[in-house]
Design a protein around this nucleic acid. Structure first.
Lengths: 153, 153
DNA sequence: CCTTAAATGACAATGTGTTGTCATTTAAGG
DNA sequence: CCTTAAATGACAACACATTGTCATTTAAGG
């Protein structure tokens, strides 16, 4: 039925794409379990990380762009995090509506707690893989993403 | 703030993971747009593909396992596809409740139409990438996934 | 043969993300 | 200065996937 003897370049890429779909799901569930008792989810954790890694408080739109998500998706998470007391809004001198988002003390400690969980987990998962291979894969995927984003415009 | 001078193996893998999250989203939206006027979505398309690639009609649970998703997720899509007339259920001699799923004539042509869209798209996206690099990335991601699945048990 | 465990489908609740639309605010151009 | 386009947040609708639970069915073990 299926001729995989001489796959085209596109077929090879398609195989990679399907693998990305599968792995994405596994990573999300693994992440959720890893930090469940910290009171976080993968999505909230990621948003906290984006805020953490920004040198200065940023707007929701900025965070969304840095994460490759839509404004709406990030806004929803940020609002929940604000209710949970993990982030706080701060007036933006450059824009009256677009408030700046920053971690609260609780947000910082929650992120730190998640990070303490994540580090040994990531190290264990990285074991037996060559860092050069991991890095090469990341570069390749980033290039593919860049091509997709360029095509969207 | 961030010491990326000497990243640990875990940090490199974390970078790869975040890239997978970003690329996953881009791929889904690109796929949705690619086949929107065929009346399909990425998820429905994937399920049709799983059914198509199975040599014989299979149960929903079998399809879910082959796709790395939960039974419930696939069942929902399959039920919608059945309403849309793209798949049909067939009595399973080996199990009274677990019916077998097969493509209808419309389902086959819908999948074929999507495939005709996908092929040139995939070839264009694969352009300028070495097939060895693409294949290597797929193998690496599959290994990572295998490790996650093994750890879940 | 009977009991028990495993697989499967059905149903509900929840979390996540996109698209679309609108009003407000800011920035840019004439 | 005024008009217009772009950015931003708010809100709603929809698609997708996980977890949890239950009843039914099948398979396995004693």
């Amino acid at each position: 039925m299926i001729d995989d003897e001489h796959p085209s370049d596109g077929e090879i890429l398609t195989g990679l794409v399907l693998e990305i779909f599968r792995l994405n799901g596994r990573l999300l569930t693994a992440g959720d379990r890893l930090i469940a008792d910290v009171g976080l989810t993968s999505a909230r954790w990621q948003v906290l990380g984006a805020i953490h890694y920004a040198d200065e408080p940023q707007t929701v739109s900025w965070l969304a762009r840095s994460m490759g998500l839509t404004r709406q998706a990030v806004q929803r998470i940020v609002n929940e995090l604000e209710v949970a007391g993990l982030v706080a809004f701060k007036a933006n001198p450059a824009h009256r509506r677009a408030q700046l988002v920053m971690l609260t003390r609780n947000g910082q400690s929650a992120y730190a707690a998640a990070d303490r969980r994540q580090k040994p987990w990531a190290n264990a998962l990285a074991k037996n893989f060559k860092r050069a291979d991991l890095a090469a894969a990341q570069v390749l995927l980033a290039k593919i993403r860049g091509k997709l984003e360029a095509a969207t415009e």
